[in-house]
Write a protein that binds this DNA or RNA. Structure first.
Lengths: 205, 205
DNA sequence: GGGGTTGGCTGAACATTGTTAAGCTGGTTC
DNA sequence: GAACCAGCTTAACAATGTTCAGCCAACCCC
């Protein structure tokens, strides 16, 4: 039992560090969150944290991976939509919702440089690979001859779709609080943007 | 003469600081560039820099303002395009080009939080206000009944256009080097994206 | 059941950051 | 000539990520 207790304590502390870090990152941002603060929230000293993670960056990376999988799971659910063009719109909306619900995590994932959006090098399982699912959807739309002649490159179209919703989310993450832009309701804006995009891309098909 | 010399030296050093900072920011990124490195490149010590700028942030802000005006100037030239819908496309392309030519400055302007995209609070002159020029163009397109019923809100449409190109640029700034996405030529992608967008938004008008 | 090992931790310390304090120097001004 | 001031320097501070050396209790093995 005590052996189990020991092991559990180790993993326990590790998880509590992750939870505390996530909470602090969301509240104050990543750069503003100090290692000492994370350690303090868990009730240990800063150096102790280095027994569980090689450095602050590794901690951040682990949270990135978790969130990436969550986004993948959300996307996987949307994959049930049969029509690939409608699914594109739904994927976009799901993406925007995900980003706005987790703005600090979104910054982590898509606005700060890091190497492992693709799960640290090794391929993610298909159900967790958000970009992969987008790519599959676009590919299906192309195969079903739903897109115009300029939109036959699945990579390029995927990038167009991703960029569109990413732009919307990231502008809001950075400038959402500022008043010099009269922000409209983001989900509505996203819906109309995606509608315009797919209307334009399906034209002439 | 020596008075002039003195004053000139003061402004000279200031400008050399700005130039060195710009160069180092572009080369290594803003956060990675230390105040001491900037000062060193100019041939002074770090504290001397504080005679010219209240802090590192003020230095960054000054560069932001300069670049903002440059973008505004680029936009002003595009305003000569008569057709507002075509002008939207051209503005978008100019924006993408600007961003890709100055990726580090782009990060500064649009990917890091700061208060003064709007020139530090005071209104920019109309010729320098990039977002304003976009807004004007969209307004003109709406007044000329070029856009569909869902695209009658100039603010919302402006945000859609901005978000689209911003997404493209910022994805490249962050992930441009990564190979897990097969990036297509960005200007071509931007062109097709903008074409799809305006096609979709003008449909049904 | 006792000695060695080990995982999880602490306290002190280090290097690097942005920034401030105090003081020097040399030209300007009355 | 005296006061002054811009522009600089050296020294120093606080905060940050990180490393080092050592403590301690739990575990393992004979």
């Amino acid at each position: 039992m005590s052996a189990a207790r020991r092991d559990l304590d180790g993993a326990e502390t590790r998880n509590r560090i992750l939870d505390a870090a996530r909470a602090l990152f969301v509240e104050h941002g990543i750069e503003q969150t100090t290692v000492r603060a994370i350690a303090g929230a868990v009730g240990i000293t800063a150096p102790a944290l280095y027994h569980h993670f090689p450095d602050k960056d590794a901690l951040v990376r682990e949270l990135v991976l978790t969130d990436m999988r969550r986004l993948g799971a959300v996307f996987a659910r949307v994959m049930r939509v049969a029509d690939p063009v409608e699914r594109l719109v739904e994927l976009g909306l799901a993406y925007v919702r995900f980003g706005l619900e987790n703005p600090q995590h979104y910054r982590l994932l898509f606005m700060l440089p890091h190497d492992d959006v693709k799960q640290g090098g090794h391929e993610p399982s298909p159900e967790e690979d958000a970009y992969g699912l987008l790519h599959v959807t676009v590919g299906q739309a192309i195969r079903e001859r739903r897109l115009g002649p300029d939109y036959q490159d699945a990579d390029q179209v995927s990038q167009i779709c991703w960029a569109a919703v990413h732009g919307l989310v990231s502008l809001h993450v950075v400038f959402g609080e500022h008043e010099w832009v009269e922000w409209r309701d983001v989900e509505v804006t996203a819906g109309r943007m995606l509608r315009a995009l797919v209307t334009g891309m399906t034209a002439g098909a």
